[in-house]
């Protein structure tokens, strides 16, 4: 079954950690720097998540995302460096433009936080099969129906793409021109979308029946096909991660 996913097979340490732990890490890597709003904390998490990207051997695949968002970050650097409200100390000049220290620092803070989030999410999605993540969530008590909705969306998109490809071939085989001027393409739209919609309606009905005969709506407690042996330290890790979150909240309240 084809899946819409960025997961890549591998055997790094992070591939062996269970999905929930990784998901917890993502949440904490995003929340803690917000709760304790200092540049040091942001930097600390940025360093941790960057290290994890390397441990997961996902740097090459993360790089395109990083470089794409760098485009946005650079404009932030420019705008804040030039126009930040608290700008006082000039840092350097570029032609007629004066960049200020405060603005640049502020923008750097934003950049570090964004890269931190990207890295943390990258660690999760590059080392976790979506189906494993969903199954883990269902095991934790998420409704199987919601789990099914997520996993079927990930499956249906590639499936529909391949159906559309076959339809395209079948209609081309009957002399339908699909390339060329705009009117030609517009005319080709209905012969393509018609069977695609009908096919997906039919398969939805059939899928619903197939699920039902296999007891999808059964109220009994469900068992799972895969008992994935994850790292036995995952419980320890999870407790540690939650502890970090709790500590950061307490810290914030005390230091108010």
């Amino acid at each position: 079954m084809r899946y819409l996913s960025l997961y890549q097979e591998g055997n790094s340490l992070l591939h062996k950690i269970d999905p929930i732990t990784k998901l917890l890490f993502v949440i904490i890597a995003i929340l803690v720097p917000i709760i304790i709003n200092t540049l040091t904390m942001a930097l600390a998490f940025f360093i941790i998540s960057t290290l994890l990207v390397f441990v997961a051997r996902a740097f090459k695949r993360t790089l395109p995302i990083i470089s794409f968002s760098s485009l946005v970050i650079i404009t932030v650097l420019f705008i804040q460096g030039l126009f930040y409200l608290k700008n006082q100390t000039p840092f350097f000049t570029l032609g007629p433009f004066v960049f200020y220290k405060e603005g640049l620092l502020y923008a750097t803070g934003i950049a570090i936080r964004i890269f931190n989030i990207i890295n943390a999410v990258a660690v999760l999605i590059f080392t976790t099969k979506p189906s494993d993540l969903i199954e883990a969530l269902v095991k934790k008590g998420v409704s199987p129906k919601i789990g099914y909705v997520f996993s079927s969306v990930l499956q249906i998109i590639p499936q529909m793409m391949s159906i559309v490809d076959t339809i395209l071939d079948a209609q081309k085989a009957r002399g339908l021109e699909t390339e060329g001027s705009f009117t030609k393409r517009a005319k080709a739209f209905i012969p393509l979308i018609g069977p695609a919609v009908l096919n997906s309606l039919i398969s939805t009905k059939e899928r619903a029946m197939a699920l039902e005969v296999r007891g999808f709506n059964s109220k009994k407690k469900k068992t799972f096909l895969n008992e994935v042996p994850y790292n036995k330290y995952s419980n320890v890790l999870q407790v540690a991660l939650i502890a970090i979150l709790v500590f950061s909240i307490i810290w914030r309240i005390i230091s108010w």
Binding site: I167, D169, A170, Q171, A173, P195, L198, N199
Partner: peptide
């Protein structure tokens, strides 16, 4: 001319 395996891939009228 090529007749495809699955007729549902082409029918729309």
């Amino acid at each position: 001319g090529l007749v495809f395996q699955n007729p549902n891939d082409q029918i729309f009228k």
